[in-house]
């Protein structure tokens, strides 16, 4: 119980530290945000006025605290450029990104775990070699190029899938799922590689364990032994899978660019090219928070799965 509390607190601590770093960075830049917004030829008075209006003339610490106070109440502030409410921008884009990540995650698990188990059971047979090739390609082919190739093949070549864009659920389940297929595959392949290799090595280790020989010597069925093995091999796989879930948000930004999906990446890149600092800070914080939650879950699952630390 205390362990869990400790982990939650330390994740929060990291989040606070990260937000401070981001804020400091923004204000360490010699160019004032006002200059960016108003353009190079704005007069000193205009800039001073803009800073006063937006509270940018206050000390950094005060600005940070007032922003952090807002965050507590769910108010992330407003864009300096077009005055949109940042919380609204995020609440519109995050679900799209989250959906993409979820599909890719499920796809990765569904392929990677059986592949890893099979290749551990059939060490050095063709399935193991195949899995190794898939893994090497998976960690090597960059997500965005894979996406481009999938568009060339599945959308332009075969015409089965849309070449990009996001079809909402409301337009029908089939078009929606078709529009998510290629993006999910390109985002998922890398994690198929990572998770299948982890499964392979974890299951392989367990298969060598004395207790598996005992199970076989006691005449348990193959299925039962598989369950015994999987349950033992689970912890590292679950950890890597949960962490992968967190990392996927980063690559999802790139995939969204390839497939022009209106997720967080559009909001973030727009903000970057317009130098809309507060939006950048908030989006990055949200994604980092997702990542930390994934890590936290990984950690808790790990403890929970191991009877020596459970409860």
């Amino acid at each position: 119980m205390f362990v869990i509390l400790g982990r939650v607190l330390s994740s929060l601590g990291v989040l606070v530290a990260v937000s401070i770093v981001l804020f400091t960075l923004v204000h360490a830049i010699p160019v004032s945000p006002a200059r960016v917004v108003l353009g190079g030829d704005a007069s000193e008075e205009d800039i001073a006025e803009f800073e006063r209006d937006n509270g940018l003339d206050r000390p950094v610490i005060v600005q940070y605290l007032s922003w952090a106070g807002g965050v507590m109440k769910g108010d992330l502030g407003r864009s300096l450029i077009d005055n949109t409410v940042i919380a609204v921008t995020i609440s519109q884009t995050l679900p799209v990104t989250l959906e993409l990540v979820l599909w890719s995650f499920c796809l990765a698990l569904v392929i990677a775990v059986p592949l890893g188990v099979l290749s551990a059971y059939h060490e050095d047979r063709w399935i193991d070699h195949l899995a190794r090739v898939v893994a090497t390609l998976g960690v090597s082919i960059p997500t965005f190029w894979l996406g481009l190739m999938l568009i060339a093949w599945g959308a332009v070549g075969l015409g089965w899938f849309p070449a990009g864009g996001y079809v909402p659920w409301s337009a029908g389940a089939k078009p929606h799922l078709l529009s998510m297929t290629l993006p999910s595959v390109s985002l998922g392949l890398y994690y198929v590689a990572i998770i299948s290799r982890m499964t392979r090595s974890s299951v392989g280790d367990v298969l060598m364990a004395d207790h598996v020989r005992v199970s076989r010597a006691m005449g348990l069925s193959r299925g039962r032994i598989l369950i015994y093995v999987l349950r033992n091999a689970l912890s590292p796989v679950v950890t890597v899978a949960a962490m992968s879930f967190g990392y996927m948000f980063g690559w999802a930004l790139i995939v969204e660019q390839v497939f022009t999906i209106p997720g967080m990446s559009r909001a973030l890149l727009n903000a970057i090219f317009r130098r809309d600092y507060l939006v950048i800070v908030n989006v990055v914080l949200v994604i980092t928070a997702m990542f930390l939650v994934a890590n936290l879950i990984a950690d808790l699952l790990y403890r929970w799965l191991d009877p020596r630390t459970a409860r």
Binding site: D210, H211, A217, L220, N232, P307, R308
Partner: peptide, 23 residues
């Protein structure tokens, strides 16, 4: 499979690691 653990059974020397740790 029917015989093992049924009519013929075995006890190994590795008592410490012979049981599955997670069940």
């Amino acid at each position: 499979r029917r015989l093992r653990g049924g009519a013929v059974s075995i006890v190994f020397q590795d008592a410490l690691s012979g049981l599955n740790p997670v069940f």
